[in-house]
Amino acid sequence: MLILRKDANENIEVFQLNKAFVDFFQIPKFYNWKLLKSKITPLVAIIYTTPWKRVKHTISLTVNDQVESFFLKTSVTHTNEFEYLMVTMETIQQLIDKKEKESWYKLMTVMSHEIINTITPISSLAENLDSLLQDEPDEDTLSELSQGLKIIKKRSSHLNNFVTTYRQLAELPLPEKKKINFTETVQQTLDLFAQEFKEKNIQLDFQSEENIQLVADKQQLEQVVINLISNCLYAIKETDKPEITVTINSVNNRIHLTVSDNGIGISQKIKNNIFIPYFTTRKEGSGIGLTLTKSIVEAHDGTIFFKSENGLTMFTLSFQTI
Rank of each mutant, 00 (worst) to 15 (best):
K6N: 03
I12Q: 04
A20T: 12
A20Q: 14
D23R: 09
F24N: 00
F25T: 01
P28A: 10
V44L: 08
A45T: 13
Y48L: 08
W52N: 00
R54V: 14
K56D: 13
I59C: 05
N64D: 13
T74M: 05
F82D: 00
Y84R: 04
V87P: 00
E90W: 04
T91E: 02
L95E: 09
S103E: 12
W104Q: 12
Y105T: 11
K106L: 15
S112M: 10
H113T: 12
I115Q: 07
I116L: 13
I116C: 07
I119H: 06
I119G: 05
L125D: 03
E127N: 14
L132D: 04
D135C: 07
D140Q: 13
S143W: 08
L145G: 01
K150D: 15
H158K: 13
F162D: 01
T183P: 02
T189M: 02
F193N: 03
K198R: 14
S208K: 05
Q223R: 13
L228P: 01
L228E: 02
I229D: 00
K241E: 15
E243M: 09
N249E: 14
S250K: 14
N252C: 07
D261A: 06
F275R: 02
I276F: 06
R282L: 14
S286E: 08
S286L: 06
G287E: 06
L292Q: 03
E298K: 10
A299D: 12
H300M: 05
T303D: 11
F305M: 09
F305L: 09
E309A: 12
